[in-house]
């Protein structure tokens, strides 16, 4: 797990966090987003366990090395499938077993979860903010 506090990422995080709340982009809010830390960007390298293409939010489940020889499952919240589909996502965008790097706005309380900001697939293709 890599944590960054780069200014260049701040705008992206702000945008993506804002998208969650504003409803202007791929992440849509059906609930408060106050649990997410908007000042941090966390990059996770892991393997997709599942991609729940569901309402009111899609969820990306990723197994990430825990530094103790095992793995920890992270829950990453994305937008509704309706809105994601209108921005190019598909139900098969992530498949179980895909190796990915995913960037999240983490939970403030340190829980293994966060809001989706961007991802880089093993093919090199990127989604969201991964600059």
């Amino acid at each position: 797990m890599k944590t960054t506090n780069l200014k260049s990422l701040a705008a992206g995080i702000l945008v993506c966090s804002a998208l969650l709340m504003l409803g202007t982009g791929p992440a849509q809010a059906h609930h408060s987003g106050a649990m997410f830390d908007r000042s941090k960007a966390v990059d996770l390298d892991g393997v997709v366990k599942a991609f729940q293409w569901t309402n009111p939010h899609s969820w990306l489940q990723v197994e990430v090395a825990d530094g103790k020889g095992g793995t920890k499952e992270w829950s990453i919240e994305c937008g509704s499938p309706n809105t994601l589909a209108r921005t190019g996502w598909r139900k098969g965008t992530f498949k179980s077993g895909d190796k990915i790097k995913v960037r999240i706005g983490p939970m403030i309380d340190g829980t293994a979860a966060g809001i989706f900001v961007g991802a880089q697939l093993s093919s090199g293709e990127t989604l969201g903010e991964m600059k």
């Binding site: 059906h30 408060s32 499952e73 829950s75």
Partner: peptide, 30 residues
């Protein structure tokens, strides 16, 4: 399309008003 808010609501609100987060098995992880 269907929105179906209750389909997979992993952010229920607790009695004290706090929005919770559930894992993929439905367990509270906050």
């Amino acid at each position: 399309m269907d929105y179906a808010c209750a389909e997979n609501n992993r952010n229920p609100v607790a009695a004290d008003g706090k929005t919770l987060t559930l894992d993929s098995k439905g367990q509270v992880i906050d």
